[in-house]
Simulated assay, not measured.
Amino acid sequence: MKGQEWYQATEVAEEYDEKRFSRGGRLIDRREKQAVLDAIGPVEDKRVLEIACGTGRFTVMLAERGADITGLDISGPMLREGREKARHAGVDDHLEFMRGDAARLPFPDDHFDTVFAMRFFHLADTPAKFLTEMARVSKNQVFFDTFNRFSTRSLYNWLLPMGSRLYGASEVEDLVATAGLELADAEHDFVVPYGFYRKVPDWVAGPFRRADTAIGGSPVGDALASVSYWDARV
C-alpha cells in the first residue's frame, strides 16, 4: 500500500478529518456519506464491513442507523480516533474496530451482507487482490470508489503525500469481473477535484459545487468526473 508510514503517523490521524472535511471539504463529506447510504440502503440489522475505515466517518454513521458494523484499518492511531468518535456518538457498544490487513481479511467466506471501502483503492498497489478478498467475505454487495485517470485529479496527483492510483472505467470493470462480481450500478461525480474544495471556504465552495453538479449532469459529465462510485454484487 502507498504511504503506509505516513498514514499510520499519530499526527496524521489527529488532523485527518479537520484537514479534509472542514471548510469546502464538508461538501465532500456529505456527498461521500450520501453515496454510501444510497448504495447500501437501509442498514438496520445488516452485517457490514468497512475496509480502511480510518477515523470512522462511515462506520459510526452506519452504527447510528442500526447496522451491525465492523471497521477495519491498518493504522492504530486512525482506529483510536474512530473509537473516540464512536464514544462521543454513543455507539461505541454497537460497532467493532479492528486493526488488520485488507489483503488477508480475518473473516470466513460470505460473512457480511455488504463490504465497502471509501478512499482506499487509490492507495492499492494490488487492487485485484483487495477486491477479491472483499468479494470473498461478502454474500451480497461490494461497494467502493476510485479516482479517475482522465480527470482533473491527475493535475495535482503528484503533489499528494501518498500519490494516487488513477483508474479508467474499463480497468475497474475488469477488476470487478476478475473478483467474480457483477457491476450493478455506477455513479460519477466531482469535475472539480477534492483538493480544490479542501482549500476554499464554504462561500467559495458552494457556487463551484453548484456549477460542478450542473456540468456533471450534462452529457459530458461522466467523462469529466474525477470520482466514481462502483456498486457490485456477488
Rank of each mutant, 00 (worst) to 15 (best):
L160H: 09
P201K: 01
Y194E: 06
F130E: 11
G180S: 13
G24L: 09
M162I: 04
D189F: 04
E32Q: 05
C53F: 02
G71Y: 01
A232R: 00
D93I: 02
F196C: 02
K129E: 15
V115S: 14
A211R: 11
R233W: 00
A52G: 15
W158C: 03
A89L: 10
P219S: 03
L155H: 05
T132Q: 14
K139Y: 07
H88A: 08
I74E: 14
V191Q: 01
A52M: 11
P77H: 07
E18I: 04
T178R: 13
G163F: 11
A169P: 12
C53L: 14
L95A: 06
A35F: 00
D110M: 05
F107E: 15
W230F: 04
E11G: 04
Y7H: 14
M78E: 10
T70L: 13
S226D: 08
E11P: 03
E84A: 07
D38W: 01
A86T: 02
E187H: 04
E18L: 11
D93P: 03
K85C: 03
A184M: 10
R26P: 01
S22L: 06
P77R: 09
K2W: 02
A103F: 15
A52H: 09
F147D: 05
A35T: 03
F196A: 05
Y7C: 10
K19L: 14
F143D: 07
G195R: 01
M98S: 07
D125M: 12
V142S: 08
P42E: 15
R20W: 07
D113A: 12
F144Q: 05
H88R: 12
